[in-house]
């Protein structure tokens, strides 16, 4: 059974998902970060594969992607680093990145490889819905990969239903209309959070963008199944390194 589906069967509240960029701060940190996050008790890990022109990302994730590319990270290398990951951990793993590297790797090969390694879900923010339906849906389903799509405060209800239908695993609920690492206040989104909750969607929801500490995490958890932290974690890695203790300290500061 897909580990994301299993996770949400067992647990519906206060989930914590952490995003980091593969190849940052150092090329070969990927597996260590995954293992430390697992030990620190997070529920789900999103591994970003870097792209030179990440449209939806703010300066912190852009910079980590740039550094990762400079360090030599590629999709092939990431798959190589992760090939034995399932010997170490059973935590649900999601790959996140932009379409172009996937296109160059080969779309079919990409999803096949994800399945082989034990990746449970994929988030491709710049993949259009019609493109998914025409070109990717069959391949994604054949490989038992959860296709995780984004919704925002500006997404209308008809489209939310369409996205909900094409999604599996969870819906990535972007907290505000902004790029990652934004500072817009949570209060502004309360109406949107309530509106989504009232829609009774088939997929659970995790809130991401702008979640950076205990306060924002707990607030997000009030309206959804949990929250995603990316930028703040990357900032932490930059300042405090990737050692087990460092990562544990960060996770503890969010959730006991």
């Amino acid at each position: 059974m897909n580990r994301i589906d299993k996770l949400f069967q067992q647990k519906q509240n206060n989930l914590l998902s952490i995003y980091f960029t593969a190849g940052f701060p150092n090329l070969n940190d990927t597996l260590s970060i995954v293992r430390h996050l697992d030990k620190a008790g997070v529920d789900l890990i999103e591994i970003g594969f870097p792209f030179s022109d990440p449209l939806a990302d703010g300066p912190v994730i852009q910079q980590s992607s740039g550094q990762a590319i400079e360090n030599g990270m590629t999709l092939s290398m990431l798959f190589e680093q992760l090939k034995d990951v399932r010997r170490h951990t059973q935590i649900p793993l999601v790959l996140m990145g932009y379409m172009n590297p996937v296109l160059q790797f080969g779309e079919k090969e990409f999803f096949k490889k994800c399945n082989e390694i034990g990746i449970d879900g994929v988030i491709l923010p710049d993949m259009p819905l019609d493109y998914f339906e025409c070109k990717l849906q069959n391949i994604v389903e054949e490989n038992d990969i959860a296709n995780i799509l984004l919704i925002t405060p500006e997404t209308n209800s008809e489209r939310i239903n369409q996205i909900d239908n094409l999604s599996r695993g969870f819906l990535y609920m972007v907290s505000s209309n902004s790029i990652t690492g934004g500072n817009k206040t949570m209060d502004m989104q309360t109406e949107y959070f309530y509106r989504i909750k009232a829609m009774n969607l088939k997929n659970p929801t995790l809130i991401g963008f702008g979640i950076k500490n205990k306060e924002t995490y707990e607030n997000a958890c009030k309206y959804s199944n949990g929250a995603i932290i990316g930028t703040a974690f990357i900032e932490h890695l930059k300042q405090h390194g990737i050692a087990k203790e460092s990562i544990q300290t960060f996770i503890k500061s969010i959730r006991k």
Partner: peptide, 19 residues
């Protein structure tokens, strides 16, 4: 209607830009 010239074009944008 999807913005394609043959196989080229389209609108590969994140959901934040969709509206």
């Amino acid at each position: 209607k999807y913005g394609y010239y043959g196989e080229f074009g389209g609108a590969f944008v994140p959901e934040m830009l969709y509206p």
